[in-house]
Structure formats: C-alpha cells, structure tokens
Design a protein around this nucleic acid. Structure first.
Length: 674
DNA sequence: TAGTATGTAAACAGGA
DNA sequence: GTCCTGTTTACATACT
C-alpha cells in the first residue's frame, strides 16, 4: 500500500511537473533565461515534493477517518455490551492503541499494555515497529522545523549575495550553482523521503504513518513557499542523510521492525555509556569510549557488520563506522530512550513468560511427585521409562499402570502401588506413597542397578522406592562391607538412601523389623557388639518359586535384545508410546539404559539358565563370587527375577559405574522387590 | 477363588 | 519407665 502510494507520488510528481512549473513558477520569476532550466527543475522538484506531501496527506486523512470510524464502532460496541468491548480490547488493544493514537506510547502506557495482557510476539513486533516509526517521524518533524529556520537564513544570505554581487555574471553563476546544488539536494531529499516512506511502509506502519508523517509535511505545505520547501528539504537531506542512509540499508536488508530476536543488549551499560559520553555533545569522551570499544572490536549491538539496535540494521564495513553510527544515531535521546524502554518491556515480558513456564514446570514436577526444589536437583529415575516400557511390553498381563496419584503426602504410606512393577515406573513415582503394593516378584528387578542409577533421585525425592522391604533390607546388608548390618544400621541405610523413609519412621521401621523376623532369608547373628543381620541368599531365592515365567516369546525377545536388536528398540519405543511416557529419556539416560539393559538381559539369562540347571548352585563361571560370608551366589538368580521383564528392565538401568560384581550378585539375588 | 507375597498395625517380651 | 530390638499375630491388598 505504501509502496503504491510512494510510487504514485513519484509518478504523479513527474506527471505534474510541467503543469506545476507554470502554476508555481512565480517564485523565481526574475531568474534569467539561462537559469530557466534550473528554475524549472527547481519548480519541478518543488511540485514533486508537494505532490508527495499531498498524497500522504490524503492517505493520512483517509486513514484518520477510518480510525475515527473504528473508534466510533468500538465505542458503540462498548456501550452495547461491555463484555464484548472488553473482549475486543483484550484482543486488539495492543495494536489498536498504537494505531489509533498518533502519539508515542509512554513507557507507562506500554507497561500497562504489557501487564494487562500478554502480547503475542506479532503484536509486540507491530507495536514496537509503530513506536519506532512514530519516533522517527517525530524526529523528522523536528528536523523539518529546524530546516525551515535555516532556510530563511539562507534565503536572506542569498538575497544579500545577489544584491552585492559585482557583476551580473557572477550573480548568475552563483545563483545557478546554488540552484544546481539545490536540485541535487532536492533529488536526494526526494529519494530519501521516498525511501523513508517505503521503509515505514514496509515496516507495516502504514496505518499510523499518515497521522505522524502528515504533520511535518502538512506544515510544510501550509506555510512554506516552494523555494522554502526546497531549501528545507535540502537541509533535511543534509542533516538526515545518515539516518536515511541507515534506513535505506534497512530497506535493502528487508524491512524489519525492532529486532525482538536479537539478544537483549545490555541496555543499561549502553545507556550509561551514552549518558557519560553522549548527551548532545561529547567528543573526547566518546572517542575514548570508542577506542575502548574498538579495542574489543566486539559490541553487543554489533554483529556481523550490522547494527543490532532494535529496528536498525545498518551495515558497516568496520567497527569504527558502527561506533560512529551508534553514537550518532542511537545517542541518548528520546527515541533511543523510548526504544530502550520498549526493549526493557520486551525483556520483562520474556522474563515473565519464563517465570510462568518455570512455574508450570514446577507444578508438573510436583504433580509427578518429584519434589525437587530444583529440577536439576531431582534427577528422574533413570529406569522410569525403561521400566515401564519393558514391563509392559513383556507382560501383557501386567496391570495397566495406574496413573500417578499425586500423593501430595508422601508420608502416607498406605496407598498401595497399583502396579506390579518393582521398577520405578512413572506410576510408581507418583504412587510414591503408600502403596502397599507389592510388586510381584516377577517384576521385581534387582535393585542395585536401579538404586545406583537413581540414587540421587531417591535421596532427594520423597518417592517410595518400588522395592519390597525385604529387597531393600537385603540390599542394605549386601551393600555393607561385611554384608551384615545391625538393625539400626539398616534403619540408617533406609533414611540415607531414601527421602521417603525420613518420615513415618515408626511405620516403616516396624515393617523392617517385621520383615527381618518374618523372612528366613534374614539371619540374625550374634556379634560381639550385638546382633547383626545377614542375608541368606539361598533362602532368599527360595522365597519364591521361580519359573522363568516368561513366555517363550519373552525369552526369545530377551535373547534377541542381547544384541540390541531392533526388537528391543521397537518394543521399548512402543512401550514408551503406549505408556505415554514423556521423553524423559534423555541421552544420558537412554543410552546407558539400553546398554545396561542388554547387559542385564545377558545377566538375567545367564542367571536363569544357571538357576534352572543348578538350581541355586553357585557356579556361574566368569562371575566373581560374593566375597561375603554369605556365599551369595550370583547365579542363583531367582527364577522370579528372571521371569519378569521388569527385572530385565531394571537391570537395564544398571549403571555402568556401579560395582558390577556386587550388583550382579545383588541383582540376581534380590530382585525381589517386594 | 484360593494361595501367596507383601504392607501395615499392633501386642508382647527382653534388654539396655 | 522408656526406648530399642525382635517376634508374633492379624488384617488388608495385590498378584498368580
């Protein structure tokens, strides 16, 4: 649209050049014939400028009318239904405010707008562009006024020169030279003006431009004679070349409003810099700062040879030019200040958004019962995904994972875990609580790997570990150097390893004691310093009947998966998808998981085989026997353990850095989580 | 549906 | 008497 108008203006100006000369040629009627050409040209230029101004005024007028109509409509609709009005406002305010008020929005207004509603990036962009345009136009207006004053002075000087000129020739030469200079300048002005218009137009400021642009032009056309206009434009050109030059660069680079995408520059620093060195006059200071900046040759507002000042894309060949431009064009003035404020608003808005997102994340974490003060501090259980995945894929019969019941009170260990997984599944996570759930042995996985991998998680998050007391106790004992612990040490291990067990001590301690007494696998040994508890692996393994329960398919899958076959991957992914497991699997999690998974499978398979063959005999070649007095045999993998894909999964989580020896033994031995 | 495993609660006893 | 440790029982739930 603006382009059209600009083009039209140009063409119109040219078309009317002939007629315009006759009409307004009186200004320099005294000019000699020799100067006719120059005078004509001058007239043409003047006329052209007037045409442009008229076009702009016309558009401005039309748009003002449209705006008024819109305002009326708004008012009417507002009276009819305040609700609708509000809605409209909420939807349009950001844009309409800027478009309908031909004034630069004050920072306060801007803040209100930003606070009252969240502006979309597009709206912000538009708003900023409009602000920029308004400020530019105001600046232009000031320039016009200054030029007008200077024009009068120049005209006076010119007359004096003409009067005092000794010879007519000299006079003519002077005048013609001046006229030529004027013509050139006028041409430049026109070009600049057109570029400026185009620039504004491209920035989508067409709507508001008329209101602003019209002001200077309006005053021009009203109170200035063509000669004055010409002079004025000349002056404007000279004074504004730089700015326009930059704008033209903008045009060349493609229009762009305030660059929201550009990183927020250290405005404060920048402002301070200007405050100290800039002002209206500053030279040495500026130079000093320039040198300083130059030494770095890096400036937050300068990158890739382009000025990154919002809305300015001026291109510079060297850093010096940029600094010069920065000090000249982005000095501490109203415009820069306003832009800076706008940028601050933008940053604030972004920060607000960030805060909201953070809050949302926190809520999500809370919902998932991952009570982490800081997301980073609360590591997600590594096997979260893998467990769910495998367990589900492997056991079709396994109950559907219960959705996390947000146990806001992890303390209440009364809620049963709904699932069968001993692994920490997303569900188990939620269920943190109290689930009394027992994870069927089948799904029990070796805790070692899981614990090792999710150690931090359990330590920080009040999540109930998906393991049975028996498994945990066993783990605690096996983790001890001597494979024996006093009851109190077991307690300590629980509280140290699991945030969850830092509450309701009476309950879980009772459970621990109960388990120690109940299960034959825990042997109480009188020691010098008292009684200690040890683990009888054989008994532990006996606890459940083993059967590699798995279906042949499962076994097959396991075998295949040993080689990281696609089957595993597919199943893994499928399960993930099935369980709607968000991709918690970060690279760090995923890869080790798969790796360890395969390893686990291998172990499990070996264990299963051994178990089946030797039925608990310790021989598992290649494995280091447990050093402990318990003679824990690694091979005696419980069939149970093997059966469940869960256990497999769990194993998968086995962290590489974990003590494989012990883990292995442990894994095989205990996986009975509960 | 029965049996089993597990979790929870409670009572009780012995010892420090 | 209190607390800790250890045992036992009872009940509920989940799973096979």
């Amino acid at each position: 649209m603006m382009q059209e108008s600009g083009t039209e203006a140009t063409s119109n100006g040219l078309a009317n050049q002939n007629g315009g000369a006759s009409v307004e040629g009186g200004a320099n009627s005294a000019t000699p014939s020799v100067e006719v050409t120059a005078a004509d040209l001058l007239h043409l230029q003047q006329h052209q400028a007037l045409q442009v101004a008229r076009q702009i005024l016309l558009q401005q007028h039309q748009q003002q009318q449209q705006q008024q109509q819109q305002q009326q409509l708004h008012q009417i609709s507002g009276r009819k239904s305040p609700k609708a009005n509000d809605k409209q406002q909420s939807l349009q305010v950001p844009v309409s405010v800027a478009m309908m008020t031909p004034q630069v929005i004050t920072p306060q207004q801007m803040q209100q707008i930003l606070q009252q509603q969240v502006l979309s990036p597009q709206q912000l962009q538009v708003l900023l562009q409009q602000q920029q345009a308004l400020m530019l136009q105001q600046q232009l207006q000031e320039f016009y006024k200054k030029q007008q004053e200077q024009l009068h002075l120049q005209l006076l000087q010119q007359q004096q020169q003409q009067q005092h000129a000794g010879s007519k020739q000299n006079k003519e030469q002077q005048v013609s030279a001046q006229q030529l200079a004027f013509q050139q300048q006028l041409l430049q002005v026109q070009q600049v003006q057109q570029q400026h218009l185009l620039n504004l137009q491209r920035q989508g400021l067409l709507t508001i431009q008329p209101g602003q642009t019209g002001l200077p032009l309006h005053s021009l056309t009203q109170g200035m004679i063509p000669a004055e206009l010409q002079q004025l434009w000349k002056e404007v050109t000279n004074a504004h070349v730089k700015e326009e030059h930059n704008n033209s660069h903008n045009n060349n680079n493609g229009h762009r409003g305030l660059d929201l995408s550009s990183p927020a520059p250290p405005k404060n620093t920048h402002l301070n810099h200007h405050a100290s060195s800039n002002g209206q006059y500053m030279s040495h200071k500026r130079e000093a700062s320039t040198h300083e900046d130059h030494s770095h040759h890096s400036h937050p507002l300068y990158g890739h040879g382009v000025c990154k000042w919002p809305g300015c894309e001026a291109v510079f060949d060297d850093f010096y030019s940029f600094l010069k431009h920065l000090n000249n064009e982005h000095a501490l003035d109203d415009r820069s200040t306003a832009q800076c404020r706008v940028q601050m608003q933008v940053v604030q808005q972004l920060e607000l958004q960030l805060a909201k997102d953070k809050e949302r994340l926190q809520a999500m974490m809370t919902h998932l019962h991952v009570k982490s003060t800081e997301p980073k501090n609360t590591p997600q259980p590594l096997n979260l995904v893998s467990n769910v995945t495998l367990s589900k894929s492997a056991h079709s019969a396994s109950p559907p994972l219960s959705l996390p019941q947000t146990p806001t009170t992890p303390t209440a260990p009364l809620t049963p875990l709904s699932q069968t997984h001993s692994v920490i599944t997303a569900n188990s996570l939620h269920s943190v609580g109290p689930m009394r759930r027992r994870y069927s042995d089948k799904y029990n996985m070796p805790i070692s790997p899981d614990l090792s991998q999710n150690k931090e998680f359990y330590m920080n998050a009040e999540v109930r570990p998906p393991f049975t007391y028996a498994s945990l106790i066993r783990q605690a004992i096996l983790e001890s150097p001597e494979k024996q612990l006093t009851l109190n040490e077991v307690y300590n291990w629980f509280t140290r390893m699991f945030a969850y067990f830092r509450r309701n001590a009476a309950t879980w301690k009772n459970a621990v004691r109960h388990n120690l007494s109940l299960h034959k696998c825990f042997v109480r040994v009188e020691n010098v310093k008292g009684a200690v508890w040890t683990v009888d692996e054989l008994e532990f393994q006996k606890r459940r009947p083993q059967k590699i329960s798995g279906s042949p398919n499962l076994v097959k899958n396991i075998q295949t998966s040993l080689g990281y076959g696609p089957t595993l991957s597919a199943a893994f992914q499928a399960s993930m998808a099935e369980n709607n497991i968000p991709l918690y699997t970060t690279a760090s999690i995923g890869s080790p998981t798969l790796h360890s998974l395969a390893h686990a499978f291998r172990e499990e398979m070996n264990g299963a085989m051994d178990h089946g063959n030797s039925n608990g005999s310790d021989s598992s070649p290649g494995r280091s026997p447990l050093p402990a007095m318990h003679h824990i045999k690694e091979e005696p993998l419980d069939p149970e353990d093997h059966e469940g894909p869960l256990s497999l999964v769990t194993t998968a989580n086995h962290s590489p850095d974990f003590d494989h020896h012990r883990d292995y033994d442990d894994d095989q031995g205990h996986d009975d989580m509960l």
